[in-house]
C-alpha cells in the first residue's frame, strides 16, 4: 500500500488549512502531531474523500483516489475526531449498519461484528443503545466500525481525545495491535499517543509538515538542549519569562523546572534527556498551552 500526497492544498476562503503538502506513506503507523488548528483534521478529511483539495491530489498505489471513488473507500477505515453515531441503535445494529455501508455481505458482517465486539471489549454492551455507552466505550465502538472492512488504510483522528488515562493507554494498545500490515495515520495533539506506537512522526504547523522522521530522529534534530534544575520559588517567574519551560514541579525544597534552551539557564542546571514532548513544545510552544503539552 502506497499513498502519495502531491502538492496537496486546501483553502477555506483566504485561510489555507493545508498548504502544499507532498509526502509519501507506505504500510506502518504515522503519527500526525500538531496543535489544534494545524490542519490535521482537514488533511485527514481529504484522505478520506470527505473534502476535495483546492490544489494537488492524493494517489493510492498510483491512482487518484477521487477517480477510484468507492474502490478507494473500500480500503479505508476512518475514526473521525467527532465520532457521531445513531443514538437509538444498539452497538450491534450500529456496526451491522456500518458494515452494510461498507458493502460487507450480511452473513460476513454478522461474523465480523461479533469478532470486533469481542476484540474491543464491548461484548457485554452489544445490545446496549449507543447513547448509553461511556465515552471510552463509544470510542471503542468507533474503532470497531473503522475496522469492520479490515481496512488497508486506517485513519484515526484524535482517537484518544477526551479519554481518561487508563482508557487512553488501553486504546493506544488496541491501535498498536490493529496496526499490523496496514497503513495507519493517527492524528493527535497528545505527544505520548504517538511516541509509543508511531513508526514515523509528522509535525504539522499552519498547514505544513514542518518536521518528519522517527521519534529518535526528531529528537536528535532539535537544535537546543533540555535542562533540569531545582530553584527557589522566587526565581521561577524570571526563568519562565526567559526560557521555554516544559515542566514545572513544586517540591519542599523549591521548584524543579525542565527548561528548553540552547544555553545553560542557571548554575545548578543539569542536562536531561530530550523527549518528544520537549520537541513538541520547542516547535509549537508559542501556540501550545499547558493543556496541549500535558500528558
Amino acid at each position: 500500500m502506497k499513498m502519495e500526497l502531491d502538492n496537496l492544498t486546501k483553502q477555506f476562503g483566504a485561510f489555507t488549512a493545508v498548504d502544499h503538502i507532498s509526502i509519501t506513506m507506505s504500510n506502518g503507523v504515522y503519527g500526525l502531531l500538531g496543535v489544534n488548528g494545524a490542519g490535521k483534521t482537514t488533511l485527514m478529511r481529504m484522505l478520506c474523500t470527505l473534502l476535495k483539495p483546492t490544489e494537488g491530489t492524493i494517489y493510492c498505489n498510483g491512482r487518484d483516489i477521487w477517480e477510484m471513488d468507492s474502490d478507494y473507500r473500500r480500503l479505508l477505515g476512518y475514526l473521525p475526531q467527532e465520532f457521531g453515531f445513531y443514538p437509538e441503535f444498539s452497538v450491534q445494529d450500529y456496526l451491522l449498519y456500518i458494515a452494510a455501508l461498507k458493502g460487507i455481505r450480511p452473513a460476513v458482517a454478522r461474523k465480523r461484528v461479533k469478532e470486533l465486539i469481542m476484540k474491543v471489549g464491548l461484548a457485554k454492551e452489544a445490545s446496549h443503545k449507543m447513547k448509553k455507552l461511556s465515552g471510552g466505550m463509544k470510542r471503542r465502538a468507533g474503532i470497531a466500525q473503522a475496522m469492520l472492512n479490515d481496512p488497508q488504510i486506517l485513519i484515526l483522528d484524535e482517537p484518544t481525545a477526551g479519554l481518561d488515562p487508563n482508557e487512553r493507554i488501553r486504546f493506544r494498545n488496541l491501535i498498536s495491535e490493529l496496526s499490523e500490515e496496514r497503513l495507519v495515520l493517527l492524528s493527535t495533539h497528545i505527544v505520548s499517543d504517538v511516541e509509543y506506537i508511531a513508526n514515523e512522526i509528522w509535525m504539522m504547523q499552519e498547514g505544513k509538515i514542518m518536521h518528519q522522521g522517527t521519534a529518535e530522529q526528531i529528537i536528535a534534530s532539535m537544535p537546543v538542549a533540555v535542562w533540569e534544575c531545582l530553584v527557589e520559588k522566587q526565581m521561577v517567574s524570571a526563568l519562565t519569562k526567559r526560557y521555554k519551560v516544559s515542566n514545572l514541579k513544586t517540591e519542599p525544597a523549591g521548584v524543579t523546572l525542565r527548561i528548553i534552551s540552547g544555553e545553560k539557564p542557571c548554575e545548578q542546571a543539569k542536562r536531561a534527556d530530550i523527549t518528544l514532548e520537549d520537541v513538541f513544545l520547542y516547535y509549537f510552544g508559542e501556540k501550545a498551552g499547558d493543556e496541549d503539552v500535558a500528558i
Binding site: 471513488d69 453515531f85 466500525q145
Partner: peptide
C-alpha cells in the same frame, strides 16, 4: 439531515457505499 445532526456524516461518506448505494 440526521447524519449531520448526529455527526455521523464523516463515517457515512467515507464508507465504500456512502456516496452511491447508501
Amino acid at each position: 439531515a440526521s447524519e449531520f445532526q448526529w455527526k455521523a456524516d464523516a463515517v457515512f461518506f467515507s464508507a465504500k457505499l456512502g456516496r452511491n448505494k447508501a
